[in-house]
Design a protein around this nucleic acid. Structure first.
Length: 266
DNA sequence: TTCGGACTTCAATTTACCTCA
DNA sequence: TGTGAGGTAAATTGAAGTCCG
């Protein structure tokens, strides 16, 4: 399959709208394995090339006439081990689009996912494909090259499609998590607002109590109170304070004293 | 150590399709 | 029945980062 592949390169411009042409298109005629690359001013090709969607090695290696693309043979990495095959696999499923005076014409008559006017129909994954992808995503949210290829082969998709699916899936997961986080924060805000409201209410009650009853109030144990002059607490019976946190103050006191919290004892 | 190419991932955006009023 | 709005998911684009020779 690969060995018989012949790649030819043609350059062209058309007057059709950007969404219909000016797109770098790579495709194959399944019958004779002839690949035709139509380049244009589109950023798609340059982007694909920049990101190695189209492997320069493929261009340079298969067709020596594109010599400027061939200087990549020294790059050796595990994840690249199959990139050549992957690219060929990608190319096999892409389209032959020829530029005619009317614009781009789909060259594959049996092509079902390209409109007559040259735009790509949006693929809808089948339930089975989605399920397999979901299962795979549960195992690992990112794919290495081999996993991607295997999955693509299993689902009869292009590796790039699997890659894109995982990319979008990660984005959806992140978005959902953000929504959850937002909800948690919203709940926290509501709780704090309620707490603030009740504390304010309590303050108002105490203030009104102070006006109507300007005498000392003890909220802690009856034996513990605060000296109004030195603001120190003492036990009414002369005994020591216990370890529990207690509060004792008089209405109008600016400095209530907490006990059981060492850092707050003066 | 620096540089550049190859490669991946992400965020933002576009595009095609679907549903529903 | 046709249509526009809005939602969703596939696909594109460009930037940033890592790895390695």
């Amino acid at each position: 399959m690969m060995c018989n592949t012949r790649l030819s390169l043609s350059l062209g411009l058309s007057s059709t709208p950007p969404h219909q042409n000016n797109k770098g298109k790579l495709s194959t005629n399944d019958d004779n394995q002839e690949l035709t690359l139509c380049l244009s001013t589109s950023s798609e090709f340059t982007n694909n090339y920049d990101n190695n969607r189209i492997n320069p090695q493929l261009l340079g290696g298969v067709n020596s006439s594109v010599s400027s693309f061939s200087n990549t043979s020294s790059v050796k990495r595990e994840r690249d081990a199959s990139s050549f095959e992957e690219e060929v696999e990608n190319l096999e499923t892409k389209r032959v689009l020829l530029i005619s005076p009317k614009g781009l014409v789909d060259h594959n008559d049996d092509d079902e996912d390209v409109h007559d006017y040259g735009t790509r129909k949006k693929l809808r994954l089948t339930k089975e494909q989605s399920d397999v992808l979901e299962d795979s995503f549960k195992e690992h949210t990112t794919l290495n090259s081999k996993q991607k290829r295997d999955l693509a082969r299993r689902l009869s998709l292009r590796p790039r499609q699997v890659e894109v699916w995982f990319q979008n899936r990660r984005a959806r997961t992140k978005l959902k998590q953000t929504e959850v986080d937002c909800e948690i924060l919203r709940k926290c805000y509501e709780d704090l607002k309620d707490e603030n409201r009740s504390l304010n209410k309590e303050i108002q009650e105490l203030k009104s109590l102070k006006k109507s009853q300007p005498f000392r109030v003890q909220l802690s144990a009856a034996t513990l109170s605060m000296c109004p002059s030195c603001e120190r607490t003492y036990c009414g019976s002369g005994g020591a304070t216990d370890n529990s946190t207690k509060i004792s103050f008089s209405i109008g006191d600016q400095k209530p004293h907490f006990y059981g919290i060492p850092s707050q004892i003066h």
